[in-house]
């Protein structure tokens, strides 16, 4: 059991605001790690002995060192097709596969395009531990869609560090579905170094019981006419807590770039808590940056309207949450996956 200090923001603010990092106590950081075998992949996913663990940010040294020294699954995906190539990596946690330390490297070659789904599932009630890296190199004129789905149970710990490097005219669209984990801690860093590079991040999170989400997204715009869009929609029930830290950093030279960040949190319980830090950092004159953040409960008028059509309060709430998430779910091409996510929303809000 150990205490962890994770997910530092790129710029600190007052310690009294309790948002510069997240401190977790009594986390069981596994030392003896056996193989993780319950994995389903498409044929283009290669298992390798090790991947690069050097990250600009990442969740923190303890967890990154664990991946460096003790990973039990290192995967490499090379997207080298000009048609949209679909890739699946599905980790299914169970009694014999309850610890996953993974490092996934994705290389998207010049002018290539692909869709990659990475799923983390637990079907049982067992406590699981996941600590992973996903690192993407998006080369010139490439276009990749990444869908990361965390459907772990609410007893598990989920730690993930994501990093992207975008060359000229590269496009990376991320959809992150973050539902699982007693603690789900995400660090996301995007280096938009190429001119006209574009990164879109669409995230939905859903918390219940005592779940804690700490989400730290950092985008550094360096290329001319680079573009970042962050859209984060969430709902918190019971005693769930969410920290969202979103940073858009216009570096010198990123002329004509644009950055937008939009965060919305539905509070479904008077015990749920939402903490947000939407940062705009700017050292370039000719840019446009916007952020908007809002929170509140579901409108009584909307609930009343739905209930007047014969739905119970719980069903009405589910409908409103799904409606809010719908725009992001629509960006997922796989109907089967969308149905699975919708089923999880219904189940988790029961």
């Amino acid at each position: 059991m150990g205490n962890l200090k994770l997910n530092e923001t790129p710029i600190r603010t007052s310690r009294n605001f309790n948002i510069n990092n997240i401190k977790l106590e009594n986390i069981d950081i596994p030392k003896n790690i056996s193989k993780f075998n319950n994995i389903k992949t498409t044929t283009n996913v290669q298992e390798v002995t090790a991947n690069n663990c050097e990250l600009t940010y990442g969740l923190g040294n303890v967890l990154i060192d664990q991946i460096k020294n003790n990973s039990n699954k290192n995967l490499k995906i090379v997207v080298d097709n000009k048609k949209n190539e679909n890739t699946l990596v599905e980790f299914n946690f169970d009694e014999n596969n309850n610890i996953l330390i993974d490092n996934i490297e994705i290389i998207v070659n010049e002018n290539c395009t692909g869709t990659i789904i990475v799923k983390y599932n637990t079907k049982s009630n067992i406590q699981c531990y996941h600590n992973g890296i996903i690192k993407i190199y998006a080369h010139k004129n490439s276009n990749v869609k990444i869908i990361v789905v965390n459907l772990l149970n609410t007893k598990s710990n989920n730690f993930i560090s994501i990093e992207n490097e975008l060359e000229e005219n590269a496009k990376v669209d991320y959809t992150i579905v973050d539902f699982g984990g007693e603690n789900s801690i995400t660090n996301y860093y995007s280096n938009l170094k190429g001119d006209s590079s574009e990164n879109n991040i669409n995230t939905i999170y859903l918390g219940k019981e005592n779940q804690l989400f700490d989400i730290n997204y950092i985008a550094e715009l360096r290329g001319v006419k680079s573009n970042i869009n962050m859209e984060v929609q969430g709902a918190l029930n019971d005693n769930a807590i969410k920290h969202f830290k979103g940073t858009i950093d216009f570096k010198k030279g990123s002329k004509k770039s644009k950055g937008n960040e939009n965060e919305f949190c539905f509070l479904l319980s008077d015990k749920a808590k939402s903490l947000g830090l939407p940062m705009l950092l700017c050292s370039e004159e000719d840019v446009e940056g916007n952020h908007a953040s809002s929170a509140g409960k579901i409108g009584e008028k909307e609930l009343f309207y739905i209930m007047s059509r014969g739905f119970s309060l719980k069903e009405a709430m589910k409908l409103m949450v799904k409606a809010k998430f719908n725009k992001i779910l629509e960006s997922i091409d796989s109907e089967e996956l969308v149905n699975e996510i919708v089923y999880e929303i219904d189940k988790r809000l029961d």
Binding site: I11, T13, S14, F17, N18, I19, C265, L267, L268, S269, D270, A272, K273, S274, L275, G276, L277, P278, M279, L280, L281, C282, G289, N290, H291, A292, S293, S294, A295, G296, K297
Partner: peptide
């Protein structure tokens, strides 16, 4: 730079922030 912290501990709130 814009560095706003927003901490909401109740559901009975209308909160919005834009920059």
């Amino acid at each position: 730079d814009t560095i706003p912290t927003n901490e909401i501990r109740t559901d009975e709130i209308e909160f919005s922030h834009e920059a």
